[in-house]
Write a protein that binds this DNA or RNA. Structure first.
Lengths: 191, 191
DNA sequence: TGGCATTGCAAGTATGTACTTGCATAAGGC
DNA sequence: GCCTTATGCAAGTACATACTTGCAATGCCA
């Protein structure tokens, strides 16, 4: 196997993410991405086919290695499972603190970028939903709401808290155990 | 005077604002602005000279007629002055609820658009600062902070509240009198 | 050492988009 | 009725940018 393959590709993905956040999808040129990655522009097109392919891949790849495997299985006990889910997402948000708000804004403006074959965030949300569904069937969570609602009610405030903190430039400390407890005692968690 | 002058110009400015919010500065093409305004593209360039000129003008003009005149003079009593200031800004935010968050995001990404000769928001902020400075000199506000700080402390939470509400899709009701009282009783307002 | 994969470089093509020019037309004001 | 002003239309220019092609160089592995 050709050893130099990984670095060029990885640098292109990283540069694409940064420029996407800095200048937006239309403002980020392939030439500039290649320059920042220290790679020729031709290589970019040989690897990713098109500008859109590159940015889709970048958005899919920005979820860290091992994130999906780290998510709790449906068989995990309720409270531990939620705790692990929360911890995994907290780490993800922390790892991309500076970029995420602008990336989200670009995703809203260019929905096609989120249509990547297996955008990991989508998969990750699917796994979270599976966990909530399993706990519903075990009778540990209320069944009068679809599991997607339960998952959103759990993760939504987390995103909101994060985005608000970034927008205002403040760090909002979060106690994971208290967050899980608060969810379980709240409206959606009540069984 | 040529009677048809105003409509074409006004429609161009309005279409430019909408497209700026929808697609961003780079994504908004002059052709599309002209089409939406129901005007030929060449008219756009004859009126505003360039794409940048058009969008600068649009950002300057989106402050409603009479807004500046409505701001309180330095001679207004403290509490009434703050109340009028607050009411004027509340109306402005209300008038542009849907557009403002995206416009602000574009302003952050393209600062040159804010460099308009007399961007009214800049002027408006200057008048607010003058009010706070006058009240400082009357001894009604603490003098150990620059008036710009006092103005920001007064208007900042208003903007934050508005942006948060838009981001989360909720309406946060605001009691103007309570807001002014809270400011005057708080840290920055204490004299 | 020979072959394959990966990359760079130089040069191109195609297209979109900002911006221009020339001419004709219509709407007022005087 | 003439002039100014505003506008549209058709056509075109200049440039940036996405994307391609051909060829040579380099690193790796068998």
């Amino acid at each position: 196997m050709y050893l130099h393959k990984a670095p060029a590709e990885a640098r292109l993905l990283q540069a694409a993410l940064e420029l996407l956040a800095e200048r937006g999808y239309r403002g980020a040129t392939t030439k500039e991405v290649a320059r920042r990655a220290g790679v020729s522009e031709v290589t970019l097109f040989r690897r990713f086919g098109s500008k859109e392919g590159l940015f889709k891949a970048a958005l899919s790849a920005f979820v860290p290695q091992g994130f999906l495997e780290r998510l709790p299985r449906e068989t995990a006990p309720l409270e531990e499972g939620l705790g692990e889910l929360l911890a995994a997402y907290l780490d993800l948000l922390e790892a991309h603190r500076a970029l995420l708000p602008k990336l989200l804004s670009e995703l809203l403006r260019h929905p096609e970028l989120g249509q990547g074959e297996a955008l990991p965030l989508r998969t990750a949300m699917g796994q979270a939903v599976a966990l909530f569904r399993a706990k519903q069937e075990e009778g540990l969570l209320r069944k009068d709401e679809p599991p997607e609602e339960l998952a959103l009610a759990f993760l939504g405030p987390l995103f909101a808290r994060f985005l608000l903190g970034e927008a205002l430039g403040v760090r909002l400390p979060l106690d994971p155990e208290a967050y899980v407890r608060g969810y379980l005692e709240g409206r959606y968690g009540a069984r």
